[in-house]
Design a binder for these strands. Structure first.
Lengths: 119, 119
DNA sequence: CAGTATCCGTGCTGATACTG
DNA sequence: CAGTATCAGCACGGATACTG
């Protein structure tokens, strides 16, 4: 089974701003990516089972898929420890940590939006 | 035809950070929203046909859908001029303009990501 | 424990044709 | 000009069962 995705990063007709924003959204968009980022944000490596527990509602398949994509995108690392029982730990890379500003600006805007709607 | 969507903004089990980020992504996520934002960013009101021209590749149906959602979310206004031929102009609201920081942080991160991958 | 394999529904997105 | 209506494909996300 392959986890290939189409992340068209060639810019063609679009301005570079479109392109960069698209690239960013292709990596942090979707239902789970930013939640996974948030779980790993502290820097502490987490195991598969810990992530399943934190991300209430995600299926094993989805978590696997999302983690593989994030690994491919260079956002996280995957460390396999050959033990019994097996242990796999996920951790943010430097590139992953650099999502901090994006996350916080989304968070800030989202909060403001919710407050405004609550009026 | 109704354009209702489910934008679950109740926070339930999730922390407020999850919730706000989700709210933000539900509004600016997707394939076209930020491109439309970008077209209207300057503040100049644009007509339907102008937007179609700028957003290469979008269908009329998609543009209509996206614009209606953004209007509902309070991001843009829709002004109808009862003339012949009809004229409709779209413009960012203050709330829409407040997306500036979100847009630029995505843009900045995306550029950095692309440069990094180009190594 | 940490996955894979398989099946499947829904909704996002698109193409095309038509209308006030 | 600025849409609606209709049909359709396919990717996203989910449920469940199985495995090294």
């Amino acid at each position: 089974m392959s986890y290939s995705r189409q992340v068209t990063i060639t810019c063609e007709n679009n301005s570079s701003a479109d392109c960069s924003v698209d690239a960013a959204l292709s990596i942090i968009g979707g239902k789970w990516k930013l939640k996974i980022y948030k779980s790993l944000k502290s820097g502490k490596p987490l195991r598969f089972s810990s992530l399943i527990r934190e991300l209430t509602g995600i299926s094993e398949k989805m978590l696997t898929t999302q983690l593989r994509e994030m690994e491919k995108d260079g956002i996280i690392t995957r460390a396999v420890y050959l033990e019994i029982p097996p242990r796999v730990e996920y951790q943010l890379t430097d590139l992953g940590h650099s999502l901090d500003k994006v996350f916080s600006s989304l968070d800030t805007w989202g909060r403001a939006y919710i407050n405004r709607k609550a009026l």
